[in-house]
Design a protein around this nucleic acid. Structure first.
Length: 660
RNA sequence: GCGCCCAUAGCUCAGCUGGAUAGAGCAACGGACUUCUAAUCCGUAGGUCGUAGGUUCGAAUCCUACUGGGCGUACCA
């Protein structure tokens, strides 16, 4: 089995060979139609050829069609409009190709002509602090990409580049030295470390907020005055129209700025109030007034190899790993390697030295910098105080990966805010002998709250990821348990089944919401929508899948049995045809997802397929089909659908449930 | 100041290297459960694709300018 699109392109290329031109670029101008009356696929190459061949496009289309050999898979091509060539797949061909998927674990996906080794760097949280919602995108998108490239037949290496060497360790080291509750630590080290991190962090924030307060107050006051002035100016009735509209807009902008400044101010006040409200905390804050600097000193001591701090770091690290691994277990995400920043720490000096030796890096304002063409700011690889930066680590990581994993391609699934950094890193790569690597920053947007601003909790902290997962599972459980719905299932769901469904739907909802948006766009997070049972949600896909399994149970058969016995498919209804074509396009959907590193392409496809299944399900009785041939055919169609949905969801990192 | 990204239905979002009448979901309204789970299906309504130009057979898509928003911008990651 090959991809339909590829087959048609190849045939078209042959038909175009009669013309003296770059055949491939024209042959690729073939795509699925957006309207069934134009067939299933359309070739659009005749129109642009008008200018090249100096002939009416309709006539060109006729010459192409005359040479086009697709009789084995298409109805006779039709020419429509200015010169579109419409292709309609033959029903018998569709049936044969679809039934072939039934016993094909690769579901019609061809082996890649050139298998690549792709290293994917994703998730990469800072350990020693709880994972928050900001980590969900990298983790979920990265995992889905790893899955799709593996499914397509590439060699995939996943690497979790942990932040295990930064300031957050200074925080817990400081916290441990001053505030540890030893019995709590021995009982539940992870919990105690999280408590210490939060405590130190809030004290640091407290002092920072107090320091920033006067400026913020002034900014807010000025913005408020400016907003008022702009508002007055806009209301001036003497002003004529174009100027007036301008002033109105200016007033709005000023108002927004004023509001933003006020929110910043209130955020600071809140951080201060959190401490001030608690006398014990206030005392702590007073006796740790230089905490920010002290934390940095603890970090610096760690980096310098201080015995005590290094010992603490080694003591903490396994517990930090436990903490993040618990989340990965819940999300069912695994990594081939977990080489954090600390792993590369011993190599950093050599990397900088090499850059200096090769004349790529120079000293500027006390720092060691690489000045790159086309960039205003340099890539700084060593600070003036001698410390290394993440540019240094990333470069060392890149060199190491090249040497040890020999990848063809490296994907960095990282926040789009870091695009500048990666642009520079990628610009430098060819100069250190890595020109053969295809380096891609698979960037993604921000998760926003209901207010359209980055998702935070009420207290202004990043929303905790585990809490989010818990909430999603709880919401899913409520839905699953709704008596009216549960009553329809015979036998009734057991408690274990309910828990399983809630887990799959709850976690799936978070992943699905994330993956269903284009990765580069920011999206608005809404738990309510995610776990809703209506519309484009994970529950819809799961429901479609469960319905299929329900039919197999009622018919006392299994997918394996259907696959073993199915001989042929027939198409008697539009819904059958629509569904079958959709199933045949699975391979195309994966291809598209891989090409753009865009999981939403697969999500869209799966949702569309599930919908077509539902239409089929509504219109075409399966077990009660008019005759046994129809019944077998429809069972086979349902079985392929189940396979496609399961495989697709698995690529997205989502499991399926047999009943719901 | 400079750089990158974005602007599509009341809301949340798709729209593949330019293709025929711009699509989903939610919300609204109207239908369909004696028939394999109505967590479903069918229908109605809703859009000068931010504005103005340009490129061409053809533009939401490419180019330019403008408006508005987000993010980044020399020693955090």
């Amino acid at each position: 089995m090959m991809r339909i699109l590829e087959v048609l392109q190849a045939r078209l290329a042959i038909a175009l060979a009669q013309f003296p031109l770059d055949v491939q670029s024209y042959a690729s101008q073939i795509r699925p139609t957006n309207n069934a009356k134009f067939g299933d696929y359309q070739a659009n190459c005749a129109m642009p050829l008008k200018a090249v061949l100096n002939e009416p496009p309709h006539q060109i289309a006729e010459r192409i069609v005359a040479a086009l050999q697709v009789r084995d898979l298409c109805e006779p091509p039709e020419i429509a409009g200015p010169g579109f060539i419409n292709l309609r797949l033959r029903d018998d061909w569709i049936c044969e190709a679809t039934i072939a998927m039934l016993n094909d674990d690769r579901l019609g996906v061809p082996d890649p002509p050139n298998s690549r080794t792709i290293l994917i760097d994703f998730s990469s949280p800072n350990v020693a602090k709880p994972m928050h919602v900001g980590h969900i995108r990298s983790t979920v998108i990265g995992d889905a990409l790893a899955n799709v490239f593996r499914f397509l037949g590439h060699r995939v290496i996943t690497d979790n580049h942990l932040g295990d060497w930064g300031t957050q360790f200074g925080m817990i080291i400081y916290g441990y030295k001053h505030f540890v509750d030893e019995s709590a630590f021995s009982q539940s080290p992870v919990q105690e470390l999280v408590r210490l991190y939060r405590l130190v962090n809030s004290l640091v924030d407290y002092h920072a907020a107090i320091a920033a307060l006067p400026d913020a107050q002034e900014t807010a006051d000025q913005a408020a005055v400016a907003a008022e002035q702009a508002e007055r100016a806009a209301r001036d009735a003497e002003v004529a129209q174009p100027e007036r509209r301008k002033r109105k807009q200016a007033a709005q902008t000023a108002k927004r700025k004023s509001l933003a400044a006020r929110e910043t101010l209130e955020g600071l006040q809140q951080k201060i109030a959190q401490i001030d409200i608690d006398p014990a905390m206030q005392t702590l804050a007073a006796s740790h007034s230089k905490i920010a600097g002290d934390v940095l000193r603890e970090t610096a001591k760690l980096h310098e190899g201080d015995r005590e701090n290094l010992g603490l770091w080694q003591k903490f690290l396994p517990h930090c790993s436990d903490e993040i691994n618990r989340i990965y277990d819940r999300l069912n995400v695994r990594f081939d390697h977990t080489l954090g920043e600390s792993f590369y720490q011993p190599m950093l000096g050599d990397v900088v030295q090499r850059l200096v030796d090769e004349g790529l890096a120079t000293e500027s304002e006390g720092a060691i910098c690489v000045f790159l063409e086309g960039f205003d700011a340099p890539l700084i690889v060593r600070k003036k105080d001698g410390a290394f930066l993440y540019a240094t680590t990333d470069l060392a990581t890149l060199l190491y990966r090249n040497e040890h994993f020999r990848p063809d391609e490296i994907l960095y699934v990282v926040d789009s805010r870091q695009s500048d950094h990666f642009d520079k890193l990628f610009a430098l790569a060819p100069q250190v002998g890595l020109g053969h690597l295809r380096l891609v920053h698979v960037q993604f947007g921000t998760v926003l709250g209901p207010d359209g601003k980055p998702l935070k909790t009420r207290s202004g902290n990043n929303a905790n990821l585990e809490t989010l997962l818990d909430d999603a599972v709880t919401a899913a459980m409520e839905a699953v348990c709704e008596p009216e719905r549960s009553a329809k299932l015979q036998p009734p769901l057991t408690d274990a089944e309910r828990q399983q469904i809630a887990n799959v739907i709850g976690h799936g909802a978070i992943k699905y919401a994330d993956l269903s948006h284009h990765r580069t766009s920011d999206y608005r997070f809404s738990l309510k929508k995610m776990v809703a049972l209506e519309g484009n949600t994970v529950a819809y896909l799961e429901y479609a899948y469960a319905r299929i399994q329900g039919i197999f149970r009622a018919g006392e058969t299994t997918e394996a049995e259907i696959a073993a016995n199915a001989t042929r498919l027939e198409i008697n209804h539009d819904a059958e045809r629509e569904l079958a074509i959709s199933l045949l396009r699975f391979s195309e959907a994966l291809q598209q997802m891989a090409e753009d590193y865009a999981p939403n392409a697969l999500v869209d496809y799966l949702y569309d397929t599930a919908r077509r299944y539902m239409v089929f399900n509504d219109n075409c009785p399966i077990l009660k089909a008019p005759d046994s041939a129809t019944k077998d055919s429809r069972l086979a169609l349902a079985a392929v659908t189940a396979k496609v949905l399961r495989a697709g969801l698995r690529i997205l990192g989502i499991e399926v449930v047999p009943r719901m």
